[in-house]
């Protein structure tokens, strides 16, 4: 076998391994962007990671110091959804700012249990965790 062919085959094997690894992680744990109506339609057996975005409804933000829990409602053109998040409230959380909640919907409690909250800031630069 010529060295060139050997390198080509060896290289292809490496490329295949890398590609397979990447493909498997992309297929696995991605989270879908859903509308509020789509989230609310999820049944008990359909719990999976999803992202849902909406404007924070005025006066709906409730912070419980004793539970270290934040609850609020978000709204889009398809409906309204209660979101519950355990942890410090994100910086600059205010009414009417668009929030992205990442987590799972709990149909029994009709609450979206978020593991992560992202605030969409009005300024283009202020992309942040």
């Amino acid at each position: 076998m010529s060295p060139k062919l050997k390198f080509l085959i060896g290289g292809l094997v490496v490329v295949t391994v890398i590609a397979a690894l990447i493909a498997s992680s992309f297929g696995g744990t991605s989270s879908d962007y859903l509308t509020i109506a789509q989230v609310r339609a999820l049944g008990p057996d359909q719990a999976r990671d999803s992202r849902v975005a909406g404007a924070i409804v005025a006066n709906s933000v409730v912070w419980s110091t004793s539970e270290v829990r934040l609850t609020f409602d978000i709204q889009d053109e398809t409906g309204r959804l209660s979101v519950s998040y355990r942890g410090p409230q994100p910086d600059m959380l205010v009414d009417a700012v668009e929030a992205v909640a990442i987590g799972k919907y709990n149909p029994a409690k009709r609450v979206f249990e978020a593991d992560e909250l992202l605030m969409k800031c009005p300024s283009k630069y202020e992309e942040k965790q």
């Binding site: 890398i18 690894l21 990447i22 498997s24 992680s25 992309f26 696995g28 744990t29 991605s30 989270s31 879908d32 962007y33 990671d49 992202r51 990442i102």
Partner: peptide, 22 residues
Amino acid sequence: ESVRGAATSLTKESYNRFAGPL
């Protein structure tokens, strides 16, 4: 979003799953 009409995002775990081994 442009292919299927519905956007899907990668979680931190899925990044870690390929970035860790590589």
